[in-house]
Amino acid sequence: MKMNRRQTEPEKVDLTAMIDMTFQLIAFFMILINFSEVERSEDIELPLSELAKPPREAAEHEMVLNLLPDGGVIYSSNQLARGDLLKPYFERKIRDAKREGKEPADIRIVIRAHEDTPTGKVQELMAECEKASLSNFALRVKERVLGTQ
C-alpha cells in the first residue's frame, strides 16, 4: 500500500514565541534577584519611615548587624546572644579594611533593628562598635508607602 508522505511527517511547532517569552521572564527575574538577602534576617521587622532612601552607592566596607528585641545580634547568619560577642568579627573587618588602606571610620555599620527593640539596646550595640573604633552608623528602615500606617 502506498502511504501518503504528508501524513507521516510530524507536525512542526513554532517555538520562537515561547522561547522569546521565556527569555524575557528569565531576564526579568535575573534583574530583580537580590543576593543581599543573605544579610537580612527574617526575624527583623524594620520600623517604617517616609524618608527611607536606598543609599546611592554601596559602601566599600560594610557590616550589617540585625538586632533582635532581646538584644541578640544576627551577623552573617551567626546568632549571638549579646553585642559584645561581635568583637572578633569587628577585628577581622578592621584588618580587612586596613589591608586596603582604609580606617575603621570608613567601615559603615548598618543596624537593622526590630521595631519593638528598646532604643537603649540599639545604643548599647552602637557603644560596642565604638569600643572597636567604629563610628560610622546607618540605621536601616523600611519605606513607608504614603497612605499606610
Partner: peptide, 19 residues
C-alpha cells in the same frame, strides 16, 4: 528564579555619626 524571587519593600538608611 521564580522560586527564589521575593518581593521586598525598599529599605533606606539614616546616617548617625558617633564621634
Amino acid at each position: 528564579f521564580v522560586m527564589t524571587f521575593r518581593i521586598t519593600a525598599l529599605e533606606g538608611d539614616f546616617s548617625i555619626q558617633m564621634p
